[in-house]
Amino acid sequence: MGLDRGWLSELIPPTGYVPDFLNPTPAGPAPAPAAEWDAILALPADWVRQDLDHLARHQGHLGPRLRPCTPTRPPAWPRSHKRSKRTGSWHYWARIRAVLDAGIFYRARTVAEHSAGRLFNDLHTS
């Protein structure tokens, strides 16, 4: 499944608001995708509904998968980690993690060798 259709395209627009419940507080510095998914699934339905209402206001509507959701009927997310691994970015997680870790190492080294000023001057403005 491409990223231009399905759950992700309804939840994460190209620009604008992204529902807060998609970013739960991590349990540690490098949580596994399965732990993150479990944290999302454990959220109260009213929190999810509030974020979906906010998303609808920003986008003007909700997609067909999200429209039938109510406070007592939360989204029917795919519950299987195996299915999610096949359809989401989990297939690429090791590569994503390596890129993120390399970015953190690069920035820490820049601060250590040059200064925080150099770090901030190198950040993109957009």
Rank of each mutant, 00 (worst) to 15 (best):
I40T: 02
L52A: 03
P14M: 07
P33I: 04
M1L: 13
P13Q: 05
V111H: 05
A42F: 06
A32V: 02
W47P: 00
D51P: 07
G88Y: 10
V48S: 01
K85E: 12
R5Y: 11
L52K: 02
M1D: 09
I40K: 01
D53L: 15
K82F: 09
L52G: 02
P31H: 02
D51H: 13
H124I: 06
P14N: 07
K82W: 13
Y17L: 15
A34S: 14
K82E: 15
L55G: 03
G28N: 15
V48C: 04
P33K: 01
P29D: 02
L62W: 07
D53N: 14
P78Y: 06
G117V: 06
Y17S: 01
I104P: 00
D4F: 12
G16Q: 04
P68I: 10
H54L: 13
W77G: 06
A94Q: 11
D122Y: 05
R97E: 14
Y106I: 06
R97Q: 12
S89K: 07
Q50P: 00
A39T: 03
P26D: 00
A116R: 09
A42K: 12
T125K: 05
L100C: 10
A112C: 05
P26Y: 05
W37G: 00
F105V: 09
L11D: 01
H81P: 14
A35Y: 00
G63A: 05
L62A: 03
P14Q: 09
A42S: 13
P13R: 07
Y17T: 08
D101P: 00
G103F: 01
G117W: 11
P31K: 02
L62I: 03
P74D: 06
R118Q: 12
S126L: 14
R73F: 08
H124F: 06
D53P: 02
E36S: 14
H124W: 09
Y92H: 13
L123D: 08
R57D: 12
W7N: 03
D53A: 11
A45F: 03
L8T: 08
T25L: 05
N121P: 00
A76S: 11
R79N: 08
Y92A: 10
F21E: 01
V18K: 11
P31Y: 02
R107G: 02
P78G: 11
Y17G: 02
W7F: 10
A27C: 05
E10K: 07
A39D: 08
G2Y: 10
V111P: 00
W37D: 03
R73T: 11
G16S: 06
R49C: 12
T72A: 12
R79E: 14
A98D: 08
A108Y: 04
T25R: 04
L123W: 12
P68G: 08
V18G: 01
W90C: 08
L100N: 03
M1V: 11
V18F: 03
D53K: 04
